[in-house]
Design a protein around this nucleic acid. Structure first.
Length: 854
RNA sequence: GCGGCCGUGGCGGAAUUGGUAGACGCGCAGCGUUGAGGUCGCUGUGGGCUAACCCCCGUGGAAGUUCGAGUCUUCUCGGCCGCACCA
């Protein structure tokens, strides 16, 4: 046996250089080959890769290398989602310029990624903060604007009065700005929107066609779009002391109209705002609601609170019935019409509200098999099916018929009609930030909002910006915003907002198809490469990024860029990488590198103090339960890190990073390394045996090829790793020196090296060379399983008596049911179990199981 | 609140989708190799009863459907995730 040591760092550097020299992973321009587009969600260049990246890109790399070996023309690119808030925070906190900070980060992350040995076509790399990238989206925006897909309207934002800036929901903590601590206000700002709601129905319907997406993501998108069918109902105000004569309400339950006992409007409903101007108490209540924030989860779990306006509205179908109008904290202006009618008997929120404010509760739906006299609503609203009661002519109708009757009745009196609403709202793309793509619009006192002429694109960001003053640096810049109106020539000012960074990520997958194109991308390249065959990323993007991208491909198609509906044919959402947490006795979080373990005793490496080992949680800087991929790669090698990432848990599930697991992966690679360095193996070119003692190993090898291929295609990569272990065990367990066995061992080892290549490419490439090959494994084709050799001729079958396993017998594969039954009943063990009883039935599932029923 | 996911050995997880539960790995134990430790190799490892076999129990809990349930149905307990400006 050759005693060569597995030197991962040396091997990895060697093959990374060779692949780069040969440009091994460049996508070919040959359009006759079948294509395969593998894409991982591109990273924000935070400066260092973390284990989540390692997992994401390893998964993508396995797919890319596997497809390449299967003969596809693979596109597997990488780039940088380079605009965003952290760069501005760095500028504020450390005085770094966002541009140079970002470029430095990209440089260090690129070299970290390269050390992982990922099969990227690096020639297609780009960063979205480069004007060469964002100029194209400025043109896209102008085309959207031309077509009415982009428009301006006022909307509400979280405003930090101290920093003079708009805050993201996550930057609002307990109603205060995260950095300033100032109480956040809600403000109306004029902002740009993209008309995603135009495609609401289509985006919803097409979810059905996304067969290779996880169900949960499809469901989340379905719920996000939130289509509701119901009716719009107009309630006329009883008095004319306010300049509003009716409140329009959207309801999914027009059938419960006779159970209405109040009207509630959102705190930012026009009526509420009007009252807030003249009524001190109302104003106070509105301020209180504003403090609650905009998140639906908060709104719906908060205590139901309201303000009685003293006004009332007429029931549209019941002459003389007056409904009091309240302002309520649980009504959202953003959904429906910003006003509801409350039917406490059949909606829990309405009931909670009615109990708190002493409003009547009239049941109008009687559950099946319940006596009307006994039916009482106490603390729980009834939302199930039933027949209408207390509803005049509609009594006795089921709910569907009741809805139709209600709509007919409303239409007859001109008080309403059927309506469908969506939860989905248009996408606000304006951000009051510096580090984003400038919105190419000029405001002129005479001409209004005028597009920047195409010849003047791109509108680039000024470099000399000052982050020491609060507010948007673009707005604070002394001269950048001053320009002249393209249409009348008068002095005018530029739009100072930039795009939401989801704008960049909504079309980057198209840019990769043709990254040097002067058009952004050519129609021809997009037609060949798109859709993405396999997209991989975190489930945190399940809704927004993916939905915006789906919208973008449609919108870009509408304005002539391409002809595509769905951008991502296959989607895999990977789980998080977790690690145990540690705290010292003061509760301070400790890094795993600061802790040593001895059985169940955890101690601080330096002080020797006892450490509390806590829950296994997602790796996060705040809890310090992070492991730096760079250190793992330096000490064990990228192949070990990659292998462990794939080994233990299914890709879609959360995994736990453990030292023991890394050791295990490393051990396996060393074992494979030794197997291939066995100098007793026959020379290259020795064919696998066709008979003799070696056949069992040959068959096992074919089973491994088959299983591995199936498992990679099905993304069962933890099982794929298990296949490799099984094959390695079989090689180790095959003893003997006969020519048949030696030839089989050579075949098995060589195949093992091929099969492991998508997972741990460096060691595979090295061993391929060790085994005598002159060409690179990266250029060789995937082995094919001989199906004839996979199926065993004799199989072991379980025999049950009354469903309990009692014996196993050996049977010829695909034998007849009669033969199987005969063999089972002839088994001495089964005879003993049957005693003298006569089998009533014998169920034979061919090649699976036999069940004797007595 | 609304919607969803997950509960299988000491641990991560397999189970051809209703057909022999626990593949593969980690851990642990024993033996061998080694100057010792580690590496490496072999063997064992769900629980109970056993000298061993046999047998009994076993997929969070309870019921149901079925010849047969980890898998399907209903209820229940526990853990986790998402809900519109972080990326």
């Amino acid at each position: 046996m050759n005693m060569v040591q597995y030197d991962a760092p040396a091997i990895e550097k060697k093959w990374q250089a060779r692949w780069a020299m040969a440009n091994s992973f460049a996508a070919s321009s040959d359009r006759t080959k079948p294509k395969y587009y593998v894409l991982e969600m591109f990273p924000y260049p935070s400066g260092r890769i973390h284990m989540g990246h390692v997992r994401n890109y390893t998964l993508g790399d396995v797919v890319a290398r596997f497809r390449r070996a299967k003969g596809f023309n693979v596109l597997h690119p990488m780039g940088w989602d380079a605009f965003g808030l952290p760069a501005e925070n760095a500028a504020i906190e450390r005085g770094a310029h966002p541009g140079s900070w970002t470029r430095d980060n990209i440089a260090s992350m690129r070299s970290q990624l390269k050390s992982m040995g990922l099969a990227y076509d690096w020639d297609r790399e780009f960063a979205t903060c480069d004007p060469n990238y964002y100029q194209h989206e400025q043109l896209m925006f102008l085309k959207f604007f031309e077509k009415g897909l982009a428009y301006r309207k006022e909307s509400w934002v979280n405003w930090d009065p101290e920093e003079n800036t708009v805050l993201a929901n996550e930057q609002v903590v307990d109603g205060r700005g995260w950095r300033s601590g100032a109480i956040v206000e809600r403000r109306r700002l004029s902002q740009w929107f993209l008309k995603i709601t135009k495609y609401a129905d289509e985006l919803l319907a097409a979810i059905e066609t996304l067969e290779r997406w996880p169900d949960r993501v499809r469901l989340m998108q379905h719920n996000w779009i939130g289509k509701s069918e119901g009716a719009r109902v107009k309630f006329r105000l009883s008095s004319d002391t306010v300049p509003i004569d009716a409140i329009e309400v959207f309801t999914t339950r027009p059938d419960t109209l006779f159970g209405a006992s109040f009207i509630a409007v959102a705190a930012n409903h026009p009526l509420a705002l009007f009252l807030g101007e003249s009524n001190r108490d109302a104003a106070d209540f509105l301020v209180e609601c504003a403090r609650l924030g905009t998140s639906q989860a908060l709104v719906e779990t908060a205590e139901k609170r309201g303000f009685d306006t003293g006004l009332s509205a007429e029931h549209p179908l019941l002459a003389g019935r007056k409904l009091p109008i309240h302002i309520a904290n649980f009504v959202l202006m953003e959904y429906g019409t910003g006003a509801i009618f409350g039917c406490p008997a059949h909606d829990q929120r309405d009931l909670d509200f009615a109990r708190a404010y002493n409003l009547p509760v009239t049941p109008v739906v009687l559950p099946p098999d319940v006596n009307q006299n006994e039916f009482k609503i106490i603390q729980e609203a009834y939302t199930g099916p039933g027949k209408l009661i207390n509803s005049g002519d509609w009594d006795g109708l089921d709910l569907e018929a009741g809805k139709q009757a209600a709509i007919n009745a409303l239409e007859a009196v001109g008080a309403g009609s059927a309506e469908t609403t969506f939860r989905l709202r248009d996408w606000g793309v304006s951000r009051q930030r510096y580090w984003g793509c400038p919105i190419p619009i000029i405001y002129c006192d005479n001409c209004g909002a005028v597009p920047v002429p195409v010849k003047d694109l791109p509108v680039t960001l000024p470099e000399d910006v000052d982050f020491s003053k609060p507010g948007n640096p673009l707005a604070n810049h002394p001269s950048w915003k001053n320009t002249s109106c393209p249409s009348c020539g008068n002095a005018a000012i530029r739009e100072q907002d930039t795009f939401d960074t989801f704008f960049e990520s909504s079309w980057y997958f198209l840019r990769y198809a043709d990254p040097k194109s002067a058009l952004g991308f050519s129609k021809e390249a997009a037609a060949y490469w798109l859709p993405v065959d396999q997209y991989i990323g975190g489930v945190e993007h399940a809704v927004l990024h993916l939905l915006y991208s789906r919208f973008f491909t449609r919108a870009l198609s509408e304005v002539g860029y391409l002809d595509l509906g769905e951008p991502f044919a296959g989607l895999m959402t990977q789980g998080m990488v977790c690690h145990q947490t540690y705290q010292d006795r003061n509760g301070k979080w400790l890094f795993p590198t600061e802790v040593t373990r001895n059985g169940n005793d955890w101690r601080h490496c330096k002080t020797g103090e006892t450490v509390k080992a806590g829950r296994i949680e997602k790796m996060s800087k705040s809890k310090r339960n992070v492991v730096d991929p760079e250190i793992i790669i330096e000490s064990y090698g990228a192949d070990t890190a990659r292998l462990f990432m794939l080994s233990d848990s299914p890709p879609e599930r959360d995994m736990e990073w453990t030292e023991a697991g890394v050791e295990g992966a490393s051990r396996f690679l060393k074992r494979v390394y030794r197997m291939a360095n066995d100098n007793t193996l026959p020379t290259i070119g020795t064919p696998p045996p066709t008979d003799g003692e070696g056949m069992e190993l040959v068959r096992t090898t074919h089973k491994a090829i088959y299983g591995m291929s199936q498992d990679i295609e099905g993304f069962r990569l933890n099982r794929a790793v298990a296949q490799l272990h099984t094959l390695a065990n079989a090689i180790a367990n095959t003893k003997g020196e006969s020519p048949s066995i030696a030839a089989a061992r050579r075949f098995a080892v060589e195949t093992l090296v091929q099969l492991i290549a998508p997972l741990t490419p460096h060691i595979a490439e090295e061993l391929w060379e060790t085994l005598g090959h002159q060409t690179m494994l990266a250029d060789s084709t995937w082995p094919t399983a001989n199906e004839r050799l996979i199926a065993d001729n004799i199989i072991e079958i379980g025999v049950q008596v009354n469903g309990k396993l009692r014996d196993t017998i050996l049977l010829a594969r695909d034998c007849t049911k009669q033969e199987a039954e005969g063999a089972a009943l002839a088994s001495p063990t089964i005879i003993r179990y049957l005693e003298d009883r006569v089998p009533k039935r014998v169920i034979v599932v061919p090649n699976r199981i036999i069940n004797v029923v007595v």
